[in-house]
């Protein structure tokens, strides 16, 4: 959209949708708080994992110790530093979530856009595929597939691709519904009348108008992916040691939730905070992308 960034002769800057959305987003205190917490967790996790890469694999003699200066989150039954584990797990979860949501975003938007815009047979075929993926319970597929995958030792990448491959259907249905409605709007016809190609109509008009839905649901997918991975790990079908994830820690910790509660509450709490942050960010994005909202929020 570079052509519109230039200043008009009148001297007023002609803004892009993104810059407006970002400006609006910056005024949203909730979303900013969400981002701040999220970024802090990310940075701390990165720094900690880099400074102390062996944190989670170094056995100590502190078995199941409550939080202290030395072990801020306490230690596990087997004497591992829980903070190292939580941060490493969070990082692992975030990497998986990014892969999953990127896949969901790209595949979901593309499939939804094509089905919604062109309609007809293509739409029918694509939507039947989506239906097929949707009618089979996601968790069941994941359990079966991860069993096959993790026989060689559940690699995080394989888990991510697996979840990603199964998570785009929701977005694609929403994008399709959104496109079906948008396609009938007069401004789309106006653009076609001006000679715009299908590509242009989709990328310049339909996606920007559906961006709220797309962004919000992509962030929801992030949350969903984290939760799914946790569920898998919790069931013992996800990531396997020495890799670690928050779900795995929750599962390990739940047995001792009454005796040494920190083992359960720290990983579960961190998981909750991350997921909440992602939701708040998604909410803020939706508001930011709606120009009507934007002015009002001022």
């Amino acid at each position: 959209m570079s052509i519109f960034r230039k200043k008009g002769r009148s001297g007023e800057k002609i803004e892009t949708q993104w810059s407006t959305a970002m400006r609006n987003f910056r005024k949203d205190k909730m979303a900013l708080t969400g981002i701040a917490i999220f970024v802090i967790i990310l940075i701390v996790a990165l720094v900690q994992t880099m400074l102390n890469p062996k944190g989670w694999s170094t056995l100590t003699t502190d078995f199941a110790k409550p939080p202290s200066w030395h072990h801020p989150f306490g230690t596990t039954d087997s004497g591992l530093d829980l903070m190292s584990g939580c941060l490493k797990g969070a990082l692992q979860d975030l990497i998986i979530a990014v892969i999953v949501s990127t896949m969901a975003l790209v595949i979901g938007t593309a499939v939804g856009a094509v089905a919604g815009y062109f309609g007809g047979l293509l739409d029918s075929v694509l939507m039947r595929v989506v239906d097929l993926l949707l009618v089979v319970p996601l968790l069941t597929i994941l359990i079966v597939m991860s069993n096959i995958f993790s026989s060689g030792g559940g690699s995080p990448l394989a888990i991510a691709l697996l979840i990603g491959f199964l998570s785009w259907t929701y977005i694609s249905r929403l994008v399709r519904a959104e496109f079906l409605a948008l396609r009938e709007r007069p401004f789309v016809e106006a653009s076609i009348a001006l000679g715009a190609s299908s590509w242009r109509v989709i990328t310049r008009h339909l996606i920007p108008n559906a961006i709220g839905v797309i962004m919000v649901n992509t962030t929801l997918t992030v949350a969903g992916a984290i939760l799914l991975e946790s569920t898998l790990s919790y069931l013992g079908l996800g990531i396997v040691p020495p890799a670690v994830s928050l779900g795995m820690l929750v599962q390990d910790g739940q047995g001792s939730a009454t005796t040494s509660p920190w083992q359960f509450f720290f990983p579960a709490g961190l998981l909750l905070i991350i997921v909440l942050c992602v939701f708040v960010i998604g909410d803020g994005m939706q508001a930011a992308f709606d120009p009507r909202n934007a002015r009002r929020r001022k």
Partner: peptide, 21 residues
């Protein structure tokens, strides 16, 4: 009310034919 893309500024809408062609 419907024939202008609500997500485009007025300047972008008016410029669209130039961009398309």
């Amino acid at each position: 009310f419907g024939s202008l893309d609500p997500k485009m500024t007025v300047g972008q809408s008016i410029a669209e034919p130039l961009a398309i062609h």
